[in-house]
């Protein structure tokens, strides 16, 4: 099993603990609040995710062959969604990231929990991560 799938399983299990949508969102808000803030220097156009209604930044780095992602947003809920994606995609090799079936992300039930515009934003964040992984993958 791809390590990303395993991490996704854990997030889905966390989501399953909640009885209603609001509780699920309180959890996402909480994740957003706890996400480490990026430095002001990194809030620039190079790291900006295009296609989101909110401002979202994803900053990649490479450590021992693994990609590390940091991220931030000007809205708390999107920041929570960024935290979820970082939990799934960060600290993985480009090969693992590119080998992950993105359709699996539907298991998060995002069609129910984010508006269509935001879902597009969510897709844009994922695409940005994939773009970074493609940039450093030499296989």
């Amino acid at each position: 099993m791809n390590i990303l799938e395993k991490r996704l399983d854990e997030v889905v299990e966390d989501f399953d603990l909640f009885d209603d949508e609001l509780e699920k969102y309180e959890y996402i808000v909480d994740l957003g609040k706890r996400l480490k803030q990026i430095s002001e220097n990194n809030r620039n156009d190079a790291y900006l995710v295009k296609g989101c209604t909110s401002s979202v930044w994803i900053i990649p780095s490479l450590k021992n062959g693994k990609m590390i992602f940091e991220g931030d947003s000007n809205t708390v809920i999107v920041k929570g969604l960024v935290a979820i994606l970082i939990k799934i995609f960060s600290d993985a090799t480009p090969k693992e990231i590119l080998g992950f079936d993105l359709k699996q992300l539907n298991r998060l039930g995002l069609a129910e929990i984010v508006t269509p515009t935001r879902q597009n934003g969510f897709t844009s964040i994922v695409n940005k991560i994939i773009e970074y992984a493609k940039g450093v993958n030499h296989d």
Partner: peptide, 21 residues
């Protein structure tokens, strides 16, 4: 100090429909 979009999403989960943006 808050973004209107965040308020709109949480209100939606409480079955209150407003528009934000």
């Amino acid at each position: 100090g808050l973004m209107a979009e965040d308020l709109g999403i949480l209100l939606d989960k409480m079955k209150i429909s407003i528009r934000t943006g």
